[in-house]
Design a protein around this nucleic acid. Structure first.
Length: 511
RNA sequence: GCUCCGGUAGUAUAGCCCGGUCAAGUAUUCCGGCCUUUCGAGCCGGAGACGCGGGUUCAAAUCCCGCCCGGAGCACCA
């Protein structure tokens, strides 16, 4: 059923969630195959999410296959870095977009050589030894360069010299023949492989083994067919690359896969440029790949943004060709919807200030639900006992609530009792006990504020999205939290617990 | 400059192919109310958009033309 009627299956989903538009000509293929093909020269970020989620999601919907392919064929300008191979794998795993297969292009150089030779032999490609400037002039004039029409034997000979290291950088390049009259000069006889000084620019994985490296259109074009990719989903900056590659497909007698070119995805205020991210981290401007100011997956993960929220967002945006500039609020809204029913609540008092309440005649036991809608999850319990001599109780409250704590005002300490403020000083507030019932507070529309008993507390800092730190005190019960727990600090926001040893450290997600 | 895409509310998206049911739907945002021992969630109500100008037509967000604006490509990068 699933194999024969993927559409029917997909349609069912439409009703419950929103749906991606159907893939073009999906019915023509026995199995849908998509691929995500990053250059391991940076960690992944929200800008890559569109490619990943769309590819993975479509493969999933159609019961197809999702391939991860590292495109690491430029050891010079876009030099791959070893650590990123694994980081990218981790990011995908975290995003719950695990590939069914993985390839690394630097392992496939012999395959590319084989096809280069084949094309050379058939006269569909040639080794061009022209000065780049000369070639440029010719091609702009729609004229062949002096190499183009040389016999294949000559090119084969040049080719062998090329891979043996007989040419220096820039001295020879393999070109795929296209149409010299093509309206777009960029399409005309595009370069397929070039010489790299292997000693000077060793590849992090294969070292100085190869002098000749394929360019994007060659390696990618071959691989898409060789790996059985049926649907290419990539950014629209690759639109002309499709046109270029189609010529090579013609030479090889292959059929070009279906291609979807979506627009760029940006998020307001986020730095999504790989080079800027790498530079900022290397120079120490950012604390790491997971600096909260970054929109890397690592950073989002650290802040408690869930993969589900990211996926939903991307699916919602869909594969349109126009660019989108998302606002963080959008992402937060998805995340909040996922988090709110799931996560427990705790009190965190930012910028604590001491509150002493006098006139307490008995001990109170505050039972705070871990989740307001799910009492079955349990409680945090605090016994508030007044001192024997003057019946006073000491609590932490937040300076942020100072406006509600003006002299004479009535305030309710959540789940505890109501007080009237008597005196406000720089570092302390004095108040007196008023009454216990919640209804009393409602009647006078007293503001509700949270609190932490002095003595039943733990120092806590929350790293905010702009990398500033919110200092404060969390309630004692939060000591039981574990790293990666996501909770809501009531009236403060959702946070992900990062660590706890003596001090609680959390990262802020959003309100 | 050349080639190619695209422009629906603050943001994102549906509708455009096969004109009317679109006085434009949805989510978020913002405002108001209800509910609620969170300024969260939920519920109810409200605000807010078809880039501009022509044309075709009984009828245009949808078709045609021009303009304007935005983006991408024009590497021996991916």
């Amino acid at each position: 059923m699933e194999e024969n009627w993927p559409e029917a299956l997909a349609r069912e989903k439409v009703e419950e969630e929103k749906r991606l538009p159907p893939l073009p000509n999906a019915g023509n293929y026995p199995q849908i195959v998509t691929r995500f093909s990053p250059n391991p020269d940076c960690v992944l970020h929200l800008g890559s999410a569109r490619a990943i989620v769309l590819c993975h999601e479509y493969a999933h919907i159609y019961n197809g296959k999702f391939i991860l392919r590292f495109e690491d064929t430029d050891p010079k300008l876009k030099k791959p870095v070893l650590e990123f191979y694994d980081r990218i794998r981790e990011d995908l795993a975290w995003l719950e977009c695990k590939p069914d297969e993985e390839y690394i292009q630097s392992d496939r150089i012999p395959i590319y050589y084989e096809y280069a030779e084949k094309l050379l032999k058939k006269g569909n490609a040639y080794v061009c030894t022209c000065q780049p400037q000369n070639f440029r002039e010719k091609i702009l004039a729609k004229k062949p360069c002096q190499c183009r029409n040389l016999p294949p034997e000559e090119h084969l000979e040049r080719w062998h010299r090329m891979i043996m290291g007989g040419y220096k950088e820039g001295e020879a390049v393999v070109r795929i023949k296209t149409d010299l009259a093509h309206p777009n000069p960029a399409v005309r006889d595009w370069p397929a492989l070039r010489v790299i000084d292997a000693e000077k620019f060793p590849h992090p994985r294969v070292g100085s083994k190869y002098h000749v490296w394929p360019l994007y259109n060659f390696a990618c074009g071959l691989d898409d067919h060789l790996m059985g990719v049926t649907h290419i989903i990539r950014g629209k900056e690759h639109l002309t690359n499709m046109v270029r590659q189609e010529y090579m497909y013609q030479h090889l007698g292959w059929r070009y896969p279906e291609a979807i070119h979506y627009g760029r995805l940006k998020i307001k205020g986020a730095y999504l440029s790989k080079s800027k991210i790498v530079q900022g981290v290397r120079e120490g401007f950012y604390m790491g790949w997971d600096d909260p100011r970054l929109a890397t997956f690592a950073a989002l993960r650290k802040r408690g943004i869930t993969p589900a929220a990211i996926k939903k967002l991307i699916v919602d945006v869909g594969p349109k060709t126009s660019d989108v500039v998302l606002s963080w609020e959008n992402l937060y809204a998805y995340n909040r919807k996922i988090l709110d029913p799931k996560v427990n609540r705790y009190f965190f008092v930012q910028n604590p200030i001491q509150l002493s309440v006098r006139g307490i005649l008995k001990a109170f036991t505050a039972r705070l639900r871990l989740h307001p809608e799910h009492p079955e999850r349990g409680f945090r319990e605090y016994v508030i006992k007044p001192t024997e001599k003057d019946g006073t109780v000491l609590l932490w409250v937040s300076k942020m609530d100072l406006k509600a704590l003006a002299v004479g005002k009535i305030v309710r300490l959540m789940e505890l009792f109501n007080i009237r403020v008597d005196k406000v000083e720089a570092y302390s507030i004095e108040a007196s006990f008023l009454s216990e019932p919640y209804e009393d507070a409602r009647k006078v529309e007293a503001p509700l504020i949270h609190w932490v008993p002095i003595g039943a507390d733990v120092p806590c800092q929350v790293i905010m999205p702009n990398a500033t730190i919110a200092e404060g005190i969390a309630e004692k019960a939060s000591r039981d939290l574990k790293p990666n727990d996501i909770v809501q600090f009531e009236r403060f926001g959702f946070v992900r617990i990062d660590g706890i040893n003596g001090k609680l450290v959390a990262y802020y997600a959003h309100k």
